[in-house]
Design a protein around this nucleic acid. Structure first.
Length: 502
RNA sequence: UCCCCGAUAGCUCAAUCGGUAGAGCGAGCGGCUGUUAACCGCUAGGUCGUAGGUUCGAGCCCUACUCGGGGAGCCA
């Protein structure tokens, strides 16, 4: 069966030939003498034309009544037609229905997020999840390719672990034959061992955080890639990170331009993502945040938001006035749909207007020593058109293993990479403390049990070298590339706080 | 844990001052040779999230709860 089928993505190579495709009804527009069936097969969409005179009468009747997501095979001649989606269509001569679907829950009209998540097992067939899935595939491949081509060795770090990376206690507990264990929140500590064996290593897999964060940037299970490099100093890491991010952007742009367009991604901004990225110290970032320039920037943003709000309100008023007049029913419907969209835009812009002064206040009152908050990152991110490295955070705000900066002992040699245009943190990383005595002090300061870290200290006892690494979140990166607002759309089966679907 | 918003047909949303519950999509039937979220006609579809309260009368007002969305903290 499979061998007899032609993939829709290959129709362009089969013009004027007779082929059979197998797929699902994505959209149906039955007419009296001609039926338009848009069929998807996992490789693309194809409009199939069934003329009443070209097929048997009973088959025509059956095809005219096919519900969305009915599965079938269709045989016919491929022809180029600019009116068809994808530019090619199938003039059907025969078809075989495998499964007739009726009452498919997901309709061509808009749905709420709750409904779509409850129907995730079916929603996965829709265009948006499909496009994101194809881009994710490219992204994951590009990530592996970059590290494989640059001398890194893949290390599969454990998912069940007894060690805790950072002090955060928000880990999932596992009852491991009566012993306490956790689902991993990072492969870093295992990678440090590995880096002292292989030199350059990386791990790539799921990671788990039991943080009670219900936002569009959080998942409890997400995928992270973490390189770790021996003999590396901070500038080395930044260079690897910017080359890495530039490479994966380039790959996605090359291989998924059509999907990016369908999703409405900002392709022009993505094309700007090339080395070098901006470099900013934490101290400099604080100066920016508390500067008049930032206050002016936020004030101008506020004005822009207000202007946008006014514009949306004007549109709403105009449509409401029009709807009150004597107009055709179809126009009424169209107005109703537009109003729903506009009201949703309006509510979003109102939130921004409400938050702007709060963020401005937070930024202006920012004190050296605190970790950068989400809104602070967003402000820095909005002020740049390329990714920004923020380096040298205060030692007290960061994890115990980060290496102290010799030039300013109050800071550590770490970095976050912020995606531009308000997307925020995509990467977090650091040089690790490689001096035995200093690490010992940090472990004691944190009040950690020394016996749990003897093995970690061993790495500093036997052939310690400067080393470091970083972690990049796959779903956040994907959200940034695609312009998707919710991170949960960027994984096939999202796991969120208080919610496991299938 | 805290703050804000919401819950009306399978889905997305209306319902003016508290006064008989509405529309589109989807489903079913019929019509239409080129449709692009097609269009036109007809049909079916409701315990207004749950429990109380105020009132002659509650989808609308009040209280509590449940569920969902957005945000803070934390983070990739």
């Amino acid at each position: 069966m499979l061998k007899d089928l032609t993939k829709i993505s290959c129709l362009k190579d089969n013009v004027d030939k007779n082929v059979t495709i197998g797929g699902w009804v994505y959209h149906s527009r039955p007419g009296g003498k001609v039926i338009f069936l848009v069929v998807r097969d996992g490789s693309g969409l194809c409009q199939c034309i069934i003329e009443k005179t070209a097929v048997q009468e009973e088959l025509f009747r059956q095809l005219a009544h096919l519900g969305m997501e009915s599965s079938l095979t269709l045989t016919g001649t491929v022809r180029a037609d600019s009116r068809s989606i994808g530019g090619y269509e199938l003039a059907v001569t025969d078809a075989k229905v495998l499964c007739e679907s009726t009452d498919y829950p997901i309709t061509p009209k808009s749905h709420g997020i709750d409904f779509l998540l409850k129907n995730r097992h079916l929603h996965l067939r829709s265009q948006m999840p499909w496009c994101i899935g194809k881009i994710r595939h490219t992204l994951v491949n590009a990530i592996r390719q970059f590290f494989n081509d640059n001398g890194f060795t893949l290390i599969d770090t454990p998912i069940i672990t007894g060690i805790v990376g950072e002090e955060a206690g928000s880990l999932f507990n596992v009852d491991y034959f009566g012993m306490p264990a956790f689902l991993t929140q990072t492969g870093q500590l295992h990678l440090e061992c590995s880096a002292l064996s292989f030199g350059k290593v990386y791990c790539f897999g799921p990671t788990f955080r039991a943080e009670k964060s219900k936002t569009r940037r959080h998942l409890t299970e997400f995928w992270m890639v973490e390189p770790e490099v021996a003999f590396a100093e901070l500038p080395d890491l930044l260079e690897i990170a910017e080359n890495f991010v530039s490479f994966i952007v380039k790959e996605v742009l090359e291989k998924n331009e059509a999907e990016l367009k369908t999703l409405g991604a900002d392709i022009e901004s993505l094309k700007k993502i090339t080395p070098p990225f901006y470099r900013l110290t934490y101290t400099h970032a604080v100066e920016i945040l508390t500067s008049q320039k930032t206050q002016d920037f936020l004030a101008s943003q506020l004005n822009e938001f207000k202007a946008q709000k006014q514009e949306i309100e004007n549109k709403i008023n105009a449509l409401e006035t029009e709807a009150k007049g004597q107009i055709k029913q179809w126009r009424q419907d169209k107005i109703a749909t537009e109003l729903i969209d506009l009201r949703s835009d309006l509510s979003e812009i109102e939130t921004k207007i409400e938050n702007n002064p709060k963020h401005a206040k937070l930024a202006s009152q920012f004190q050296w020593g605190k970790d950068l908050g989400g809104s602070d990152e967003t402000i820095i991110s909005l002020m740049h058109d390329k990714p920004i490295f923020v380096t040298h955070y205060p030692r007290d705000a960061k994890a115990f293993y980060m290496k102290q900066d010799p030039d300013n002992p109050k800071t550590v040699q770490n970095f976050d990479m912020l995606a531009p245009a308000g997307f925020g943190e995509i990467i977090g990383g650091s040089i690790r403390e490689d001096i035995y005595d200093k690490l010992l002090v940090r472990i004691n300061e944190q009040g950690y049990k020394l016996e749990n870290y003897q093995w970690y200290l061993d790495l500093r006892r036997y052939g310690s070298v400067p080393h470091g690494g970083f972690g990049l979140g796959v779903e956040r990166t994907l959200a940034w590339f695609t312009g998707e607002k919710h991170i949960r759309q960027c994984i096939a089966f999202p796991r969120m706080m208080d919610k496991i679907l299938i």
